[in-house]
């Protein structure tokens, strides 16, 4: 216990002790002469620490030096920022040029295709065939065989140009007389579930 009190004494001497610890130290001091001697000893050390000649602090000179260093730091920082900006803007410039070139190449490739306006490409792939005509949306019964579908489409001269969609819808293009084709398709109830003419008409070669 005495060591604990002794460890608190310096903070009693500097006046920073408070609350229960302060009371404990005060009580111990009142009872123990050796502790009072310790207290006197610590006060002497504190007086000496306070009177230490630590020399003159840098004061105004220190402040000037600080301000000079601060200005130097700021100027270094401001030089670095434009450098970074230059690097960044250089990178962006290159990226912009590359993007422009890409755009030109794409444009050169795509524009001729656009000029073949309203063309559809046969879903059967292979050689590119552009076909023109009314578009029909058709769904087939689940039991329909590919072979039977093929025969029917060849019979009505229809081409699959899109599909199947997630709902099983195929887009067909018929070269002429769509109503007659629709009637024929509807007649094959064992194959065709639904058929309807779409609003537009596809065009092509």
């Amino acid at each position: 216990m005495k060591k604990e009190i002794e460890e608190l004494l310096p903070f009693y001497v500097n006046g920073s002790l408070e609350g229960e610890e302060l009371e404990t130290v005060k009580n111990a001091l009142a009872k123990d002469e050796a502790l009072r001697d310790e207290c006197t000893f610590l006060k002497s050390i504190r007086d000496e620490v306070l009177n230490q000649d630590l020399g003159v602090s840098p004061g105004e000179f220190g402040l000037k030096r600080l301000q000079r260093d601060l200005a130097k730091e700021k100027s270094t920082l401001s030089q670095k920022i434009p450098q970074n900006d230059n690097v960044k803007s250089g990178i962006w410039r290159i990226a912009t040029i590359a993007a422009c070139i890409m755009l030109l190449v794409q444009t050169a490739y795509v524009v001729p295709l656009w000029q073949q306006n309203n063309d559809l490409v046969a879903a059967s792939g292979g050689n590119v065939t552009h076909i023109r005509g009314p578009v029909l949306s058709v769904t087939f019964v689940p039991e329909a065989q590919e072979e039977n579908i093929r025969e029917l489409l060849l019979a009505v001269d229809a081409r699959i140009v899109d599909g199947p969609s997630a709902l099983g819808v195929y887009k067909l293009v018929v070269p002429k007389d769509p109503e007659a084709v629709i009637s024929k398709l509807r007649a094959h109830k064992n194959l065709v579930e639904t058929v309807q003419r779409d609003g537009g008409e596809s065009g092509g070669k």
């Binding site: 310096p10 903070f11 006046g15 920073s16 002790l17 050390i45 000496e48 620490v49």
Partner: peptide, 30 residues
């Protein structure tokens, strides 16, 4: 006593001197 204390303060280890400085010069709580 003043000279002796001054001399002895200088012989303290750096960390001890730091704590003593903070306690007795700055009067800080522990």
């Amino acid at each position: 006593k003043s000279d002796h204390i001054k001399f002895c303060l200088d012989t303290l280890k750096a960390v001890q001197r730091a704590v003593m400085q903070l306690a007795f010069f700055q009067d800080l709580p522990y």
